[in-house]
Nucleic acid binder design. Structure first.
Length: 340
DNA sequence: GGACATGGGGAGTGCGCTGT
DNA sequence: ACAGCGCACTCCCCATGTCC
């Protein structure tokens, strides 16, 4: 059995981290949040995840459990163009977190739960997208939209932490193998195909310097009895100092509209949401579950209407692009919602 | 104001080719 | 034979425009 990560935790935040921050991290960020500690604690609860959304949700849950006073939000939009996996407000520090779950095939039962991870393959694109996350975090910090950023990539695919076997692969600039130093302008090799580079053809420009230092996360046994390692890679994007005591920007809260006497789509969705929340251990539900529940209730509304309501009009943390919105639901993860 | 349609983007998947 | 690499594609979620 591999050494458990909790036994290798460093005592502090970014200063003790592997990457070289591009600027000096804030004292608050150092004192309040250590992703290695969170990952170690999470590994006790969950050694494996079904998907990236599952990982995001579990990590957010772990952060919230460890920091009850923190404001943890999934899939926020700090700007119109940027979608952020996780934003944590903790002790006056805004921590932006981007997550990646890069799965290789796995089949097995872990802690009584069956896991069937399909091979995501496309490792070249995955490497590109990890660095894209770091660039995005750098931009958020530089623009003052976050105080510190963390990129956390979890994988059971050893091709990510091992060097390439091939000489000069098309994704040489994006390789993330152990010990690799990342900095400067990173782009595809000239011989990369269009199918790979389409919508990813703009080179990434890193302001900071980062070193790839994979850490053990867990070891799980697959259906053939073979141990499979999960490791994670963490990059810190350290931030600009904030004014001590400055207030956090408050999230706009939309007052709930009075309930209509007629049965609207919103009424039916709320009824379905309450039913699903009562059945769910964590009180969350997906849009798909809402649609199914409405079908069972005999709803007359089209699926698209229901989806629009759930993801937009009734969702308190969705962009306000409708004249009337309601603070009925809150998005807590990729495709997951709960009643406010 | 409520309901619906549609397009974009990202996550995820499958498969052929190449190298060991 | 198997692992790694490269590529293309589908599906789903979400944002947004428009009609009733």
């Amino acid at each position: 059995m591999r050494q458990h990560p909790s036994s290798r935790i460093t005592p502090a935040g970014p200063v003790a981290m592997d990457p070289v921050p591009c600027t000096t991290p804030t004292i608050g960020a150092i004192m309040t949040f250590d992703p290695h500690h969170v990952m170690a604690r999470l590994a006790v609860q969950r050694t494996i995840f079904h998907s990236e959304a599952d990982f995001q949700h579990a990590l957010a849950w772990q952060i919230q459990c460890e920091h009850p006073d923190a404001r943890v939000r999934l899939h926020t939009r700090p700007t119109r163009e940027i979608r952020l996996d996780l934003l944590v407000h903790l002790d006056g520090v805004r921590i932006a977190i981007e997550l990646k779950h890069l799965a290789a095939a796995f089949s097995g039962v872990v802690a009584g739960e069956n896991f069937e991870l399909l091979n995501q393959a496309a490792q070249d694109i995955a490497r590109h997208d990890v660095i894209k996350d770091v660039v995005r975090l750098e931009r958020l910090v530089a623009d003052g939209l976050a105080d510190v950023g963390w990129s956390v990539t979890l994988s059971n695919d050893h091709t990510f932490w091992r060097p390439a076997r091939k000489v000069d692969p098309i994704d040489a600039a994006f390789r993330l193998h152990e010990g690799r130093q990342l900095s400067g302008t990173l782009g595809w090799a000239a011989n990369a195909g269009k199918g790979t580079t389409v919508k990813r053809d703009v080179p990434h420009v890193l302001a900071g310097h980062y070193q790839c230092n994979w850490r053990d996360y867990s070891t799980v046994i697959d259906s053939s009895g073979r141990p499979r390692d999960f490791r994670y890679l963490c990059f810190a994007v350290a931030g600009v100092p904030r004014v001590p005591g400055s207030r956090l920007a408050e999230t706009p809260v939309v007052a709930p509209a009075p309930r209509l006497t007629a049965v609207t789509a919103r009424d039916e969705i709320l009824e379905a949401a309450r039913t699903l929340a009562n059945r769910s251990a964590d009180k969350t539900f997906s849009v798909h579950e809402i649609v199914d529940q409405l079908r069972r209730q005999g709803s007359r509304y089209a699926e698209n209407t229901v989806r629009t309501h759930v993801v937009s009009r009734m969702c308190v943390n969705a962009p306000d692009h409708h004249a009337t919105v309601f603070a009925d639901l809150e998005r807590v993860g990729a495709g997951r919602y709960r009643l406010v």
